[in-house]
């Protein structure tokens, strides 16, 4: 498409071109059209000049010096991503646990573990770590569920409304429990992240305390 440099343009078009000019994106072919508009339109001319000053002011807002620390710590960042990925993954699995009240009985359903592609050694060990943490955490939740079921039987509630109220109370308890497990895994992930010289072996070892804590063992 050829542009007629003498064809007049609207203020709206001039503003788009003016913004292009401001950020160095103006097509050379468009420049005469913008210039002609600015020559004849005082309002656009004034705004163009004002915007140029504003742009300079905006440059005064420099990034926080701590923002650059990441690039100097990129190795740590990678491990941080991996360890937090493990924690979040487990958290998501736990959140997939549901309680439902149907036909007078309480059902707990467990989310299936999403498959993580085993692409490499590292991904595979990462996967095993996640699996172990997930299994252990779910075991802990399962035993809580069993305990709750026993309590339910003992309470001998037959009324649906009362049953539903009880389920809500149980759900709250489960939420608390999940939050606790999530926080625990988060703490471990943070501890791992703070360890500056994390090696592949250290990453493996990280799985053990997660599993231990998930079981509720005291060291």
């Amino acid at each position: 498409m050829t542009i007629d440099p003498r064809a007049p343009i609207s203020c709206e078009d001039a503003r788009a071109l003016s913004v292009d000019l401001l950020y160095g994106e103006l097509d050379r072919a468009e420049q005469p059209r913008l210039e002609r508009h600015l020559e004849s339109c005082a309002e656009c001319r004034d705004q163009q000049a004002g915007h140029q000053d504003v742009r300079k002011l905006l440059d005064r807002w420099r990034p926080d010096p701590r923002i650059d620390e990441v690039s100097r710590n990129s190795r740590r960042t990678w491990w941080r991503v991996a360890s937090v990925a493990a924690a979040l993954f487990v958290g998501a699995c736990l959140l997939g646990t549901r309680v439902s009240w149907q036909d007078g009985s309480v059902t707990f359903s467990f989310a299936a573990t999403a498959a993580v592609e085993e692409q490499t050694d590292l991904a595979a060990s990462f996967h095993r770590l996640i699996e172990a943490a997930h299994r252990e955490s779910n075991d802990r939740l399962r035993s809580l569920h069993e305990q709750i079921l026993i309590e339910l039987e003992q309470s001998e509630r037959e009324n649906d409304a009362a049953g539903a109220a009880l389920v809500r109370a149980l759900e709250r308890r489960l939420v608390r429990e999940r939050r606790e497990i999530g926080a625990m895994i988060g703490r471990l992930a943070r501890a791992a992240m703070d360890e500056s010289a994390l090696t592949r072996n250290a990453f493996h070892r990280m799985g053990a305390p997660i599993a231990r804590e998930a079981r509720g063992d005291k060291r």
Binding site: E12, R15, A16, S18, V19, D20, L22, Q47, G50, H51, D53, V54, R55, K56, L57, L58
Partner: peptide, 24 residues
Amino acid sequence: ATTAKSRMWRALAKLRVELKECAP
């Protein structure tokens, strides 16, 4: 892209008013 540019223009106009006391 035209919308992005017109938003930028409007934003710059507002910032100009907002920051007029800081003008160099």
